[in-house]
């Protein structure tokens, strides 16, 4: 474990709980893409299938359980409890256009052609594009609540920190996973224009609004 990965995991945890609390406190999921949350739930479920078979550490197992439980809880709040506030008119990204190609790529490009490894690879590829419905929804509504932009900033930062973690691990541990690194770069690049808007607007107390 290194500081980049620890801060990255905590940033990820923060993002998930900022969103969960926003929905719970405001009893509304306006401006939040339920489709992205479904994709994130799928990412965690397919990635953590080894939860009971591959024990790494208490921290690792605990975080896996928390990530799965909190993301499933978010999907539950959005589609069941606060369904009336779900903005389906703006959450229109066709996620089958993400899941199908990502599924095909996981079959073609992976470390080992076994079910668990293909599902892990599917999860890594899917995570890199899972935020697209959310970014698409913001581009359609033209703006995002400040709390939602904090959520996105923490979520985008987590994988950027993981890139630093992989640089650290390459030099100090000789650890290198090309699939995770390439997908992590794609994932972080997708946030670049959001990061620009966040730093130039939200940090100065302005609301995040995309140029019309």
């Amino acid at each position: 474990m290194n500081i980049f990965r620890l801060v990255g995991d905590l940033s990820h945890l923060l993002a998930i709980f900022v969103l969960l609390l926003k929905i719970w406190k405001s009893r509304s999921c306006a401006g939040v893409s339920g489709k992205s949350q479904i994709l994130f739930a799928l990412v965690f479920i397919t990635r953590y299938l080894d939860l009971f078979t591959n024990f790494i550490s208490v921290y690792n197992s605990l975080m896996k359980v928390i990530f799965i439980a909190s993301t499933v809880a978010t999907v539950y709040l959005m589609y069941i409890k606060f369904k009336a506030t779900y903005d389906s008119n703006h959450d229109t990204f066709r996620i089958e256009f993400l899941v199908v190609p990502v599924g095909g790529l996981a079959f073609l490009v992976n470390h080992d052609f076994t079910p668990l490894e293909i599902l892990w690879t599917f999860s890594i590829y899917l995570e890199s594009v899972a935020i697209l419905p959310q970014l698409f929804m913001i581009s359609k509504t033209g703006e995002a609540e400040t709390i939602t932009s904090h959520y996105l900033f923490a979520l985008g930062s987590y994988r950027a920190l993981y890139l630093l973690n992989w640089i650290y691990r390459y030099y100090f541990e000789g650890y290198f996973d090309l699939i995770a690194v390439v997908a992590g770069c794609v994932q972080t690049i997708l946030y670049c224009d959001f990061f620009y808007l966040y730093i130039t607007k939200v940090m100065w107390g302005k609301k995040l609004s995309l140029p019309a």
Binding site: R5, D9, H12, D50, N54, I56, N60, M63, K64, F67, H111, D112, E117, W120, Y162, N165, Y175, F176, D177, A180
Partner: peptide, 10 residues
């Protein structure tokens, strides 16, 4: 099989 990095990350 040996060349797969261990899955010790989240």
């Amino acid at each position: 099989y040996l060349d797969i990095p261990e899955k010790d990350e989240l």
